[in-house]
Design a binder for these strands. Structure first.
Length: 494
RNA sequence: GCGGGAAUAGCUCAGUGGUAGAGCGCCAGCCUUCCAAGCUGGGGGUCGCGGGUUCGAAUCCCGUUUCCCGCUCCA
């Protein structure tokens, strides 16, 4: 069965993945807190993203910019003009006006006193024929206007302790701008050649009009963004570099989500129509995921052209160009932007991993996380908690493995229940220490110094020497599959 | 923004004016040699919040907040 949003919200709270923000005060709409397991999962997502897209590539570097920036950044980027003024809409023609300007616009008026003749009336004046003042849309003259709406998409704040004197600025609504603003710093300090990319993961803030659907749309969220700069004059495979790299990134990003567990049937690409493209974009393709709420955007990959660098160059007066040695010319790079939401990725990975299975007539809830994403990697479980020798070995194993991975120890229930608990939070491997491991000193039996490793999805078990545990987990948690590794060790029948 | 529904234990929910409940989960003990076993005991709720009616309110009334569904809006 597919996970419903309710089931995920409930599991998230019960097992420490996600809590509603400020819950004891009644909760804050559209804000969520990551709990002990949620933060591990989220950090793992960000880490593999960084490793795969920054660390592993010669053409990528990263930055970590401040959330507060010079307010002119948002003037240049277009966010300030587009998103901070009270707006009214015409219900008929859908034209949008700034509410504080609407009364200054000449009014197109279909006058009832002159059988619907059309007049243009100056601002503030009544109609000379019927005496009416403006009530309808200045543009089409027919539609009613909606009440003014404050489109504060950006969170306004004040730099400086005294509000009246302080400079107004904004919490960034996207991380991208810091990478454009730092273009020249990064280029010069790292001696980069096009094409190259700058990556950043960090928080962004938007006063969303309609937040909701758990962590899908929140007012504070985390992005993983890449700005990949290319020389638009270059040709790759017979195409312009920006178009070539745009498609490359779409493919790479899609493959990345598949690699970490999202199923093909839950992923698709969606091309933005020309009329829905953002003002800066030449082409945008969304990777959509089949969330519990339906198909929705998981990440967007946009060709932002040279819009942003040109804007910042214009507003700052600084040249933001790249010198093409071959052509002996300065060019403004085009930029391809793969932008993913960390929280949405987490939701997708969780939804896709969720399974309800039947095992021996009982329901088993299991999160089949990719081992690299799983918040807990290994649970160490003593089969008998009253046997000091067993407990001692188990504790030693836990401490040893915990130097490299997130490992937990649990002895508070029967083994079956302990397994189910770990299944429910997606722990890929359990290590069980039993009498066979340590032997029975009273009977003069020595143990075999082997423990049972149990794999989450197949529930298969193998006997592995304690001395080899760390090496085995380095393989299992580093890309080697269970199917490849398990045959090297004797199985255990349960 | 409009309409409808909901809010009681960690979770799922019962409780329609008279001492705050169940199942599951959680904790402790006993038991237990590998897939939510059993027994015993335990912690945990100012019934979303504020006001009102009443001898008495989880229950009736008003307000408010949050969440869900639909519409609208938005990208």
């Amino acid at each position: 069965m597919n996970a419903t949003m309710d089931v995920l919200v409930s599991l998230s709270k019960r097992r420490g993945f996600v809590f509603q923000s400020s819950e004891i005060y009644g909760g804050t709409g559209s804000c969520w807190d990551y709990g002990p397991l949620g933060v591990e999962l989220k950090n793992n997502i960000k880490r593999v993203w960084w490793r795969d897209f920054v660390q592993a590539r010669a053409d990528m570097v990263g930055i970590d910019a401040s959330i507060l920036m010079h307010s002119t950044v948002w003037k240049a980027s277009g966010h300030l003009d587009h998103f901070t003024d009270p707006m009214v809409d015409c219900r008929e023609c859908k034209h949008r006006f700034r509410a504080d300007h609407v009364n200054d616009l000449p009014w197109t008026h279909y006058c009832p006193a002159t059988k619907g003749n059309k007049f243009t009336i100056p601002p503030g004046e009544p109609c000379g024929h019927c005496g009416q003042r403006r009530t309808l849309c200045p543009e089409c003259g027919k539609g009613e206007l909606t009440a003014p709406r404050q489109f504060n998409l950006m969170f306004k704040t004040f730099m400086g302790p005294v509000e009246e004197d302080a400079a107004v600025t904004y919490l960034r609504p996207e991380t991208a701008q810091a990478m454009f603003v730092n273009f020249d710093n990064v280029l010069q300090s790292m001696r980069l050649k096009l094409p190259f990319g700058v990556a950043q993961a960090g928080r962004s803030f938007r006063n969303e009009i309609t937040p909701g659907n758990f962590i899908f749309r929140t007012r504070e969220f985390e992005q993983m963004e890449i700005e990949y700069f290319v020389n638009p004059h270059d040709r790759v495979d017979g195409r312009s570099a920006d178009e070539y790299w745009h498609d490359r990134w779409i493919g790479d990003c899609m493959a990345w989500f598949q690699r970490y567990g999202l199923r093909d049937e839950n992923l698709r690409l969606r091309e933005h129509d020309k009329d829905e493209l953002a003002h800066y974009a030449k082409r945008t393709v969304d990777i959509e995921y089949k969330f519990p709420i339906g198909w929705s955007e998981l990440m967007g990959i946009a060709n932002r052209t040279d819009f942003d660098l040109k804007q910042h160059s214009k507003w700052s007066g600084k040249s933001l160009t790249y010198f093409d040695e071959e052509r002996k010319e300065h060019v403004v790079p085009y930029v391809v932007e793969p932008a993913a939401g960390v929280d949405r990725a987490l939701l997708a990975f969780m939804a896709d991993a969720y399974r309800e299975e039947e095992v021996r007539g009982e329901k088993r809830v299991v999160l089949r996380f990719h081992p690299e994403l799983a918040p807990l990697k290994v649970a160490v479980l003593p089969l008998l908690k009253k046997r000091e020798d067993i407990v001692r070995v188990a504790q030693t194993i836990r401490a040893d493995l915990a130097r490299q991975w997130r490992v937990v120890y649990d002895d508070t229930a029967a083994i079956g229940r302990l397994y189910r608990r770990q299944d429910e939070v997606g722990t890929p491997y359990c290590v069980t220490v039993d009498v066979q491991t340590v032997g029975d000193a009273e009977r003069g039996e020595t143990g075999d110094q082997r423990v049972t490793i149990r794999e989450r999805d197949s529930m298969e078990q193998i006997r592995v020497p304690v001395a080899e545990l760390a090496a085995v987990f380095r393989e299992l948690l580093g890309g080697v599959t269970w199917t490849d590794l398990a045959p090297r060790y004797p199985p255990v029948r349960s």
